[in-house]
């Protein structure tokens, strides 16, 4: 009997780095979504490690068009399926932060504004990792990347990351949620909810990158837990504009617990940069207050 064997829609043998957060996230998403799906992915890490010709890791229909047009291509697929009378197949976009925050942002905004019945999931590893760690609109304050290096006059990224969750909320979506790979049941529940509603839905998923964040391969899940436990990335859920769930923190950890494990933040622990850690703590505190995480 093999009753407890679980189906993998992301086949083994793909080329993700050992311990890849994206691969974990996509396995969980696909398992929650089931068989009746079409997935569209922009260019990025996920595309690269899953899709060599003749060696695809996808067990569901998957389309990679270009870097900046996955939401529009998904719109066309969704419209075509409905034109053919197929109202059962779900269309999901799984795209990185570069595609979502930056180059494909206009297409995403258009897709959700038009009301296509598509679940968009941003896998956010907070920089352009596929091209070798360059900053994106999702790179957090203080992080070093190869385009925001530590230098005589530079201490990493100077701006806080774009608040895409709020931007998506401002599009009046029926479902907006945040998730990380450290909470698989929570992610699965949110994917199912996002698919169940009629119309566009957005899930923001944190997927740490070992190389880009400067952590060990075995720490991927742990980091995606610490980012929640410090209050830097609250797990929340909005349905029809209302905040319907928040992952509470009894005692939020200080942000240092999260930052100190990552080489990209190593310079923050130099004495002269103590203020930057205080700034990041302020961001976490604001989140804790905004969502009443401690209450």
């Amino acid at each position: 009997m093999q009753t407890d064997l679980k189906k993998n829609y992301l086949a083994p043998g793909h080329n993700a780095c050992p311990g890849c957060g994206v691969a974990i996230g996509v396995r969980l998403i696909l398992r929650a979504a089931g068989e009746k799906v079409v997935v569209v992915s922009p260019t990025g890490c996920l595309e690269t490690f899953t899709s060599p010709y003749g060696a695809s890791a996808w067990e569901v229909p998957w389309v990679h068009p270009l870097f900046e047009n996955a939401p529009a291509v998904a719109s066309g697929i969704e419209a075509a399926l409905k034109y053919k009378g197929d109202y059962e197949t779900h269309v999901i976009v799984i795209g990185g932060d570069g595609a979502t925050f930056d180059i494909g942002f206009g297409a995403l905004s258009g897709m959700v504004e038009r009301g296509h019945d598509i679940l968009y999931i941003c896998y956010d590893n907070e920089a352009y990792m596929n091209t070798g760690i360059q900053r994106s609109g999702a790179t957090p304050y203080g992080a070093t990347t190869n385009t925001t290096p530590r230098g005589k006059f530079s201490r990493g990224e100077t701006r806080p990351k774009k608040d895409l969750l709020e931007i998506m909320r401002a599009h009046n979506l029926r479902y907006v949620a945040s998730a990380t790979i450290a909470y698989p049941q929570d992610l699965a529940r949110k994917v199912k909810k996002g698919l169940a509603i009629d119309g566009p839905a957005y899930i923001h998923l944190i997927t740490p990158c070992n190389l880009g964040w400067g952590i060990n391969p075995e720490e991927t899940v742990e980091l995606s837990r610490l980012i929640v436990k410090t209050g830097l990335f609250p797990l929340v859920e909005y349905e029809d504009g209302e905040l319907t769930s928040v992952h509470k923190l009894k005692n939020a950890l200080p942000v240092e617990e999260y930052l100190k494990k990552q080489k990209r933040f190593a310079h923050l622990f130099e004495e002269e940069n103590a203020q930057m850690i205080a700034e990041i703590q302020k961001m976490a505190d604001q989140n804790i207050k905004k969502y009443n995480l401690a209450g």
Partner: peptide
């Protein structure tokens, strides 16, 4: 850009 992308998607779906 999205107009072309939408018809790309629709054509891919047959």
């Amino acid at each position: 850009f999205s107009a072309a992308s939408v018809i790309f998607g629709a054509a891919s779906a047959g």
